[in-house]
Amino acid sequence: MLPFDFCYYLPRSLSQAGSLFEKLQKNSAKPVFFGGGTELISRGRVGNITFGAAIDVKSIHELRQIKDTGKEIVIGGAVCLREIAESNVFPLLGAVVKRIADNTIQNKITLAGNLLGGIIYREAMLPLLLLDAKVVIYEKNSTKAVGIKDLYLKTPLLNEGQLLVEIRVDKQKTCLPWFHNKVVKSEKIDYPLITLCAVKENSCIKYAVSGLYNHPCIIDKESLKNIDINQVLDDHISSASYRVHILKQQIQNAHKELFS
């Protein structure tokens, strides 16, 4: 049982969810949007987070869709990682999510949960950064699309009351040659030491990495030369210098694979 009590709501539409959040926030009821809930529950249990109301978004139809519109691939924020992988609509994202946590938890963690939660790695962000994804956000009865690149370094990514409805990527780009490798310290089921994703478009490779800093980032030759070692993660998983070494190695591997 969580060590604090809260209310639970199950809205059926975006507008219901949005207005409920507004109302609860006005009454200082500390509402949160509840997707997979794995982080809210695990952090709540150890006293790292509290909330007064959980608004379960999994019954909101727009958040549960996986669509191929012909031009775009659309994945709802409350789609779970397993569903993303099984749909095969976005192979690189599928490969990434299959290495997040474990198979069973992938039945619970949602796309939005991985992108917006407190855990710093946000590996699902990497393919979205590489493909210049758009994030559709619902707030106060209207939706807007924002480029993920304009969002990903904000802390928090979304403001209170904003709900991640879906991500959209150019369908053609999902077919570009891609690379993914997650390097861990030793045990396979673990946070990344370095997760590298890369996409090749017109003989040009773009890289995105999790595990280098306390946020995912896009990397290129320039930024690789200018890595500030003091910003690089240094912990029980890996020293900062080893992380940089592994990153360079993975970039080398990606380059080799994508040009072979």
Binding site: K185, S186, Y191
Partner: peptide
């Protein structure tokens, strides 16, 4: 041999959950 140890910084064990104290899972 491969995974298990307390990661202790100045008397504080940093890895007290199975998320951070790794034990063997079935390998690929």
């Amino acid at each position: 041999a491969m995974h298990e140890s307390f990661y202790c910084q100045n008397g504080r064990v940093e890895n007290t959950s199975l998320r951070t104290y790794k034990v063997r899972h079935k390998e690929d």
